[in-house]
Design a protein around this nucleic acid. Structure first.
Length: 717
DNA sequence: CATCACGCTGTTTTT
DNA sequence: CAGCGTGATG
C-alpha cells in the first residue's frame, strides 16, 4: 500500500474542498497558476484511494499537450494505480468510441481520419463541381474554405448563416460555399472519411441518439473530469453532459480569462452554463496564485479589468517582492532579437541557467528573426508550436504509400503517390484509380494499367512496393523501411533541401517501432502525433532556452519570460477592412502569456515607428513588422494617417515602390465605431468593413440588426 | 505531362 | 515577399 497523501497539508482550503467533495457535479473556477491541474490530479488520487477503479476515471482535455501533462502527473502520484486512469483529448476519446460504434451512425468502423491538409485537398477536388462563373467574384482559398466549414460545423450553424456573421466579405458566394459544404459531406460519407470535426460531432450524436451506447460509456467511465473547460465548444459541452448524464459525477475546471480557442468555436460562457446543465452543481473558486509575484499579477489583473465581460475572481499571491514587468519597445525586429539574446548571454554569464528562461509569442513566425540570432550566438533553444510535422509534403507523401494499403479507397493518398510517378499527373492518376476500382486488381499489378506505356514505367516499381506492403501482416517498422527505400530517390529529385527532409523522415522509424499494427500506427500519427519540433529533434532538453507559441505554452511556467508581442495590427493593408481586430482574444492571449512568468517578465514589442509601410510589392525592411507598426492608425483613425502605397515605376519586371503615410479619407470615410445616420434606418454605429465600398452598421432602433450598406447612403454624425 | 512566367492576394493559434 | 492558380509552351 502506498503512503497516504496528507491532503490537508498539501492543499489550500479551496483546493481541498475540490479534491474531497463527494460525488455530484462540481465547477471549479480556477485562475492562472492557482493549481488547477494539481487539484484535478489530487482528486484522481483521492478517488483511487477510496476504491474507484482508475480506468473508470476519465480525464478529458482539449489539447494533446494538456492531456499528456495531466496523465503524466497522475501517473507520478503516490498510488501507482493512478497511472491507469483513462484520458486524452475529446478527439481521441471520440476516435476510440467510434472505432467500435461508427456503424450506429451509418459509417464503417474502419473509417479513415482526414487531417487538415487532407480536408483542403478534398475541398480542392470538389471546387470544379460548383460550376462557378469563370471570372469575377472573389472566392475564398481552400484554407479559408476549410476554416469556414470547420468553424460553422463547430458552432453547429448552417454555413450560409455563419458566413453572414463572420465572413461577410464572402456573402456573394455564400450559396456556393454552402453547396461545397454539402458536396464535402457527401464525399466523406461515400469514402468513409471523417475529419476532426466529424469525430466530435459523431460522438455527440452517438451519445444523444443512442441510449445503449450512452449507458455503456456511463458504466465504463464513472467519473468524468474536464480540464480547460473554458476551451470547450458547445458540442464538447454536450458530450460532457451526456457522459455524466446518468451518474452526474463530473468535475469541470477552467478559467474564463484563459479562453484562447475561439477560432475553434470555443466559448468560455460554457463555464457559466454548466450549472444550468447540472442544477445541483457545486461551485468552487481557486484564486490564490502560487506561481507569480505580485507585480506580475497586478499586470495581468489590470489586463483583464479592461475586458467587457469578466465574470470571476481577482488573483492574489503571497509571493512578495519581484521586479515590475518591463516593456521594451524596440524599433525593429532585429533590434529585438539582439536585445533578447544579449540579455540572455549576460544572465548566463552571471550564472543563471538558460532553462529558466522562455520566450513566448502569438504566432510561430514571430520568433524567426530571434531564432536566427540565437543560432548565430550559439544559444541552444527548443521551439514549441507552429510546426506541423505531419502536414509537410514529404511526410504526407511518405505515409500515403502505407495509407493506400490500409484503406484501398483512399483517393487522396492514391493521388499523392501516383502523381509522384514520372509522367503521371492528375489525369492519369484519376484514370488509374477508376480502373483499380473496377478491376479489383491486386496492388502489385499496377503496371498492368492499360494506359501504361514506356514513359510510365515508374508504375511498375510502385506496384512492387505496394505488393510488398500488402503481402503479409507487415509490421510498421518493416513498412517504413520498404517505403524509405522506394521514396528516398523521389525525395531527392523533388526537393532541393532533401537532407533536412530525409532527417525528418527518419524520425518515423522509432515511432513505427512502437507499433505492431500498421493501421494503428497510421491512426495514432493523426491523433497522437509528436507535439512539436522539440519532441522530434530531441534537442538537449536539459540546457536549452524555450521558445513557444502562447497556445503551446499552456500549463508551463518559467522564472523569466520574454513576450514578443505584435499586438495591434496583423492584417495586410489589402484585407484590413474586412477583419476588425479581436481585442478580446488578444487580451486573453496576453494574459495567458503573462501568467507563465514566475519572477520576472519582460515584454518586447516589435517596432512602432520608422519602418516602411508594408505593401503588396515588398518595400524595404521586414514586411510583417512594418505593417504591424502602421495598421493601428489605419484601422482606428483615418485622420491620423494610414498605410498607402504609391507606384513609382517599372523597370524590366522589377518594380519599385515607395511607401508613405497618408489620410485615407477618400476611400475609407468611416472607422469602426463611427456614428452614422441612414435616411431610412436612422442612427447607427459602424461595426466593421465589409467590402471596399460597404460597411456593416448596427442600428439600435432597428432591432439590433446588422446591415451592409454602401458608404454613399450614410452620413456621419 | 512538365515547366515556366505572370498575376493576384493576404493571419494566426490546434484537434 | 511567398504561395498559389492560370495560361502558354515544349
Amino acid at each position: 500500500m502506498a503512503n497516504r497523501i496528507e491532503y490537508e497539508k498539501v492543499l489550500n482550503p479551496a483546493q481541498l474542498e475540490a479534491v474531497t467533495s463527494s460525488d455530484g457535479p462540481i465547477l471549479v473556477i480556477a485562475g492562472a497558476g492557482s493549481g488547477k491541474t494539481r487539484t484535478l490530479v489530487y482528486r484522481v488520487a483521492r478517488l483511487v484511494e477510496s476504491g474507484v477503479p482508475p480506468e473508470s476515471i476519465l480525464l478529458l482535455t482539449f489539447t494533446r499537450k494538456a492531456a499528456q501533462e495531466m496523465l503524466d502527473r497522475a501517473a507520478s502520484l503516490a498510488d501507482p494505480r493512478c497511472r491507469f486512469v483513462s484520458g486524452g483529448t475529446f478527439h481521441s476519446l471520440a476516435f476510440k468510441v467510434l472505432r467500435s460504434h461508427a456503424e450506429a451512425l451509418g459509417y464503417a468502423n474502419s473509417f479513415t481520419i482526414l487531417d487538415r491538409s487532407d480536408m483542403e485537398e478534398v475541398l480542392r477536388s470538389l471546387i470544379p463541381e460548383l460550376h462557378m462563373p469563370k471570372k469575377g467574384q472573389r472566392f475564398p482559398k481552400r484554407g479559408t474554405l476549410a476554416n469556414i466549414l470547420s468553424k460553422a460545423a463547430n458552432l453547429q450553424e448552417p454555413v450560409e448563416a455563419f458566413i453572414l456573421e463572420e465572413y461577410s466579405q464572402f456573402i456573394e458566394v455564400a450559396p456556393q460555399i454552402g453547396n461545397l459544404g454539402s458536396l464535402y459531406a457527401e464525399y466523406k460519407k461515400a469514402n468513409q472519411l471523417m475529419d476532426y470535426d466529424d469525430l466530435i460531432i459523431s460522438l455527440q450524436r452517438l451519445l444523444g441518439e443512442n441510449k445503449d451506447i450512452r449507458t455503456e460509456l456511463s458504466r465504463k467511465y464513472g467519473h468524468i473530469m474536464v480540464d480547460e473547460y473554458q476551451d470547450t465548444n458547445a458540442i464538447q459541452a454536450d458530450i460532457v453532459k451526456w457522459l455524466a448524464y446518468d451518474h452526474r459525477n463530473v468535475m469541470v475546471v477552467g478559467d474564463d480569462a484563459q479562453s484562447i480557442y475561439s477560432f475553434r468555436g470555443a466559448n468560455y460562457r460554457n463555464m457559466f452554463d454548466f450549472p444550468s446543465i447540472f442544477p445541483e452543481t457545486k461551485i468552487i473558486k481557486l484564486e490564490q496564485n502560487y506561481r507569480s509575484t505580485q507585480p506580475i499579477l497586478a499586470l495581468t489583473n489590470a489586463l483583464m479589468d479592461q475586458a467587457d465581460e469578466k465574470y470571476t475572481k481577482c488573483l492574489f499571491t503571497e509571493r512578495g517582492g519581484g521586479e515590475k514587468p518591463k516593456v521594451i519597445d524596440t524599433r525593429t525586429e532585429h533590434e529585438q532579437a539582439l536585445l533578447i539574446s544579449n540579455y540572455l548571454k549576460q544572465q548566463m554569464a552571471e550564472g543563471q541557467s538558460i532553462n529558466d528562461f522562455a520566450v513566448l509569442f502569438r504566432a510561430a513566425y514571430h520568433s524567426f528573426e530571434l531564432e536566427a540570432e540565437l543560432t548565430r550566438q550559439r544559444i541552444p533553444y527548443v521551439k514549441y508550436g507552429g510546426f506541423k510535422f505531419l502536414e509537410s509534403a514529404h511526410i504526407k507523401d511518405f505515409l500515403a504509400h502505407m495509407r493506400v494499403v490500409v484503406n484501398r479507397d483512399e483517393a487522396i493518398s492514391w493521388i499523392r503517390i501516383l502523381r509522384l510517378v514520372k509522367n503521371v499527373g492528375m489525369g492519369k492518376s484519376q484514370a488509374i484509380i477508376k480502373w483499380m476500382k473496377n478491376e479489383q486488381t491486386p496492388l502489385q499489378q499496377l503496371a498492368e494499367w492499360p494506359g501504361a506505356g514506356r514513359r510510365e514505367s515508374g508504375l511498375k516499381s510502385l506496384g512492387i512496393l505496394l505488393g510488398r506492403l500488402t503481402s503479409r501482416e507487415i509490421e510498421p517498422k518493416n513498412a517504413v523501411e520498404q517505403v524509405m527505400e522506394y521514396y528516398l530517390p523521389i525525395l531527392k529529385d523533388k526537393f532541393d533541401d532533401y537532407p533536412r527532409r530525409q532527417k525528418e523522415l527518419e524520425q518515423l522509424v522509432p515511432m513505427a517501432n512502437r507499433y505492431r499494427k500498421l493501421r494503428r500506427f497510421l491512426d495514432d500519427l493523426v491523433l497522437e502525433p509528436p507535439t512539436s519540433s522539440a519532441d522530434i529533434d530531441q534537442g538537449e532538453k536539459g540546457k536549452t532556452l524555450t521558445l513557444s507559441t502562447v497556445h503551446s505554452a499552456k500549463g508551463l511556467e518559467w522564472p523569466v519570460v520574454f513576450i514578443i508581442w505584435a499586438m495591434e495590427g496583423r492584417f495586410p493593408a489589402s484585407m484590413a477592412y474586412s477583419n476588425p481586430l479581436n481585442l478580446e482574444e488578444e487580451r486573453r492571449l496576453m494574459y495567458v502569456a503573462a501568467t507563465r512568468a514566475k519572477d520576472q517578465l519582460l515584454i518586447s514589442y516589435p517596432g512602432q515607428e520608422s519602418v516602411p509601410v508594408w505593401s503588396n510589392y515588398g518595400g524595404a525592411g521586414n514586411g510583417l513588422s512594418s505593417f504591424i507598426s502602421t495598421l493601428p492608425s489605419y484601422l482606428f483613425s483615418h485622420e491620423r494617417g494610414a498605410a498607402k502605397t504609391l507606384l513609382r515605376g517599372r523597370k524590366r519586371g522589377k518594380r519599385q515602390f515607395e511607401t508613405s503615410l497618408e489620410p485615407r479619407s477618400r476611400s475609407y470615410p468611416f472607422s469602426q465605431g463611427d456614428r452614422v445616420r441612414h435616411p431610412a434606418f436612422g442612427p447607427g454605429v459602424v461595426s466593421k468593413f465589409v467590402a471596399s465600398n460597404k460597411v456593416e452598421v448596427l442600428f439600435k432602433n432597428f432591432g439590433k440588426k446588422l446591415l451592409h450598406l454602401e458608404y454613399t447612403t450614410l452620413e456621419k454624425i
